[in-house]
Write a protein that binds this DNA or RNA. Structure first.
Lengths: 187, 187
DNA sequence: ACCTTAAAGCAAAATCATTGCGTCTAGCGA
DNA sequence: TCGCTAGACGCAATGATTTTGCTTTAAGGT
């Protein structure tokens, strides 16, 4: 259940950071599939029981780390027009998510507690970014589709292909989806 | 890696059937999260090492079972027109997949060997059903979108919401997606 | 009917997961 | 500032799962 810190500062925070960093490092050293709780714990300098107590099991931990990694670290760029903003965002999204590492993170995020908000978090990140882009466009006076429409027509299809048919995805696909949605709503 | 049978008939097949059945039964008796390899093996009347040798780990086994369960057992119904056929199919698809059990199967299917074709299989099942519907409509002389378009505009969005935002999904959503795609291609 | 070999059983060893209990420390009120 | 207190961690014992070497079984071909 991804027990969150009750005491944000201090040791608790250090342990969390240390464990997250350990997952991160080991994932690239030995591969995601070779991760085990004892291995991560040793690298993090904590005991396995600490990890089990805080995260429950390896899946929860990985899910937790994945969500953090999937959080966008920067606001969508401003290219002056909705079409360019959305296209650039979709291209970058697809590029990051379609890489093997990105796919792993997504799958891990889907695995956390079923009712837990981990997958929902990821969805919310994307929705926030899209909302930001659309709001900015609206302030420019552009006619915009709403967030749900963009999710249905751009994010959904991209994610489906990333998860279920990871081959043959490229930036042109993202551009096509964006072009189609703007064509039916835009100027 | 979901080692397939090299010897289709005989003991190998019986073991596979027995193990699959055991997963199935136990999943409904004790819940999917309580499944363990030893438990499944005992119910199936095999030794755990057999399961580990054939499937590698529990995830692969569940993924294998999930794909089998997700295979449609019946051809899409004929309602006389593309719009009704597609709508009915989408409604049923959403209904089955959005239920907790369906979501579990999908998530399990996504977990198999990353390069393995388990997730791809599921996608292919849907594509086949859609192709069947579209081909039948074309034979009636109706103008139809192509399969990829239906996947992008109907299956992708539905699957995204099932996986990432499982709340507030209903048949009306499926109907809306189908209506929108036919509106832009159809009569 | 015999041979070959993939696949299953068996059992020991290794690794991982779980849990009770004592210790420590961050955060809080006096 | 100085204790309190409760949550979080470490340690260590216990139980369960996973892995592995070796043996046995039986399917499929000759």
């Amino acid at each position: 259940m991804s027990r969150q810190m009750v005491r944000p500062g201090g040791r608790s925070a250090r342990v969390q950071a240390s464990v997250h960093a350990a997952v991160h490092e080991l994932a690239s050293e030995v591969g995601r599939d070779a991760l085990t709780v004892p291995l991560v714990a040793q690298r993090a300098g904590v005991t396995p029981s600490t990890v089990y107590r805080r995260w429950g099991d390896l899946q929860e931990l990985l899910s937790d780390v994945a969500v953090k990694r999937l959080r966008p670290d920067t606001a969508p760029g401003d290219h002056g027009a909705l079409a360019s903003d959305l296209t650039a965002w979709a291209e970058q999204f697809l590029d990051e998510m379609a890489h093997p590492a990105g796919r792993s993170y997504i799958r891990d995020a889907l695995l956390g507690d079923p009712d837990g908000s981990n997958a929902g978090q990821c969805s919310a990140y994307a929705a926030d970014q899209i909302d930001f882009i659309l709001t900015r466009a609206a302030e420019r006076g552009e006619k915009t589709p709403d967030v749900e429409t963009v999710i249905d027509r751009v994010v959904g299809p991209m994610m489906y292909r990333i998860l279920f048919r990871p081959d043959g995805l490229d930036a042109a696909y993202a551009r096509r989806l964006v072009a189609e949605i703007l064509g039916s709503t835009g100027p």
